[in-house]
Amino acid sequence: MSGYIVEVNNLSKTYKSGHQALKNVSLQIKQGEILALLGPNGAGKTTLISIICGLVNPGPGSVQVAGFDVVKAYRQSRQKIGLVPQELVVSMFETVWNSVVFSRGMFGKARNDAFLQTALQSLSLWEKRDSKVMELSGGMKRRLLIAKALAHEPEVLFLDEPTAGVDVELRRDMWRLVEQLRQQGVTIILTTHYIEEAEAIADRIGIISQGELLLVEEKQQLMMRLGQKQLILQLQQPLATVPASLASYALDLSADGLLLTYTYDGGSDHNHVTEMLGAIEQARLKLKDVHTKQRSLEQIFVSLLEDAS
């Protein structure tokens, strides 16, 4: 065992159409972490998840889950995995209860009504247990898919675009649920193109584009490393122009002359904040307030994709 719950090594995948969906992807996922895979449509996120879960035949490379190869030891690897697909694909004529009982059985677990009851209760579906799936709202169907994925008590949960097309309230519910699962020790890998989702819940971020994994990094480090910061100085008196003594700091002056903005590399130990503030004092500018702003993950994501293309 390598210590990773999921290990992908040099994985490639080319479909019969000739489209290369994955190009030599390597990825290691630690137990208990939340990894968000970000990427535009067609980047290869779903292909990667589908190969790990057994839905798509892998190409060259290897994939292991809890140390088990997903092809050679598929039974052991798949028992560890729960998958919540992107689409609302569930048998519409089944009842909610039968649907989760089916899922648990499929993964080789003896029926455990008490566990399934708890799972349904935690997803606010217990009252609907005797309803047919077709009678549920879209949000409830999505929660049911999560209940089905959790029915066999997996160690790794894949959420493929879990909040695509859901309302804000349900999205927040999902995020709470993900946090709750993490506290129970479940490793979560989610794909999303909602940047704020990754920003809100992920420990690490992977960015994938055109089948290539551009980077995988701790969220905080990524934002520190690639995130520019801005120091915004609010002046007591408006300025007509930036004083010549401050020209080297490339300060931006707002149209009303009351805000000076200094942009610097948040991850660098060698910025010039101290010197710039000293120069402000020497220029006898009186400050009313000071605050900082960090570049969002979305801005980082967009710039990385631009660099890649």
Partner: peptide, 18 residues
């Protein structure tokens, strides 16, 4: 065919079954 058509076949294909 029904699960294939609806997409719910994913559950069968991703389960530890031969």
């Amino acid at each position: 065919y029904m699960p294939k058509w609806s997409g719910s076949i994913y559950e069968v294909l991703s389960a530890p079954v031969s």
